[in-house]
């Protein structure tokens, strides 16, 4: 495999309003089964279509924590895999098979705190192709400084 160093995002490279590269993913039932196995969350409405319909749902639907994980992947692909200090979301609506999900991560502020840490605040969302919000929240990361 390739062993080239991953590109590093520096504090000075980021300004308010900047957006992280968008991550797109078409949600499948296989994703739900894989996430169930990867997380141990076997709540039946996420993998058992018969059960989901029996409780009045049109089909199985995605785990909220899958959505948060997918969005987290987009954030940490950009700021670095160990850069986060905080990550919080509200689960706004369910995700459905075949929806095209896309991430939206926007810088809302940057500060240097009293300990000299270079912090970047972001608003983050996961949406479908119609723009319906699935997950909305905020994250904060420490970035390295060039100075």
């Amino acid at each position: 495999m390739m062993m080239e160093a991953l590109s590093v995002l520096y504090f000075e490279d980021v300004k308010e309003g900047d957006e992280a590269p968008v991550k797109k993913h078409r949600l499948t039932r296989t994703d739900m089964v894989r996430y169930a196995g990867a997380s141990g969350d076997y709540m039946p409405m996420h993998h058992d279509e018969v059960f989901a319909k029996s409780i009045g749902q049109p089909s199985v639907f995605g785990h909220g924590m899958f959505s948060m994980g997918l969005l987290g992947a987009a954030i940490t692909d950009w700021v670095g895999k160990t850069a986060l200090t905080r990550y919080k979301v509200r689960f706004a609506s369910q995700t459905w098979p075949d929806e095209e999900l896309r991430t939206q991560v926007t810088v809302t502020g940057r500060t240097v705190d009293e300990d000299g840490r270079h912090l970047v605040d972001m608003e983050c969302k996961l949406l479908n192709s119609e723009g319906d919000v699935k997950v909305v929240g905020e994250a904060q990361a420490i970035l390295p400084s060039r100075n």
Binding site: M1, M3, A73
Partner: peptide
């Protein structure tokens, strides 16, 4: 496997060399 489960393809989760 959890990284794969959330569609995070970063090699840092798969290979200590990465």
């Amino acid at each position: 496997y959890f990284a794969i489960g959330v569609c995070d393809k970063s090699p840092v989760y798969q290979d200590p060399r990465a």
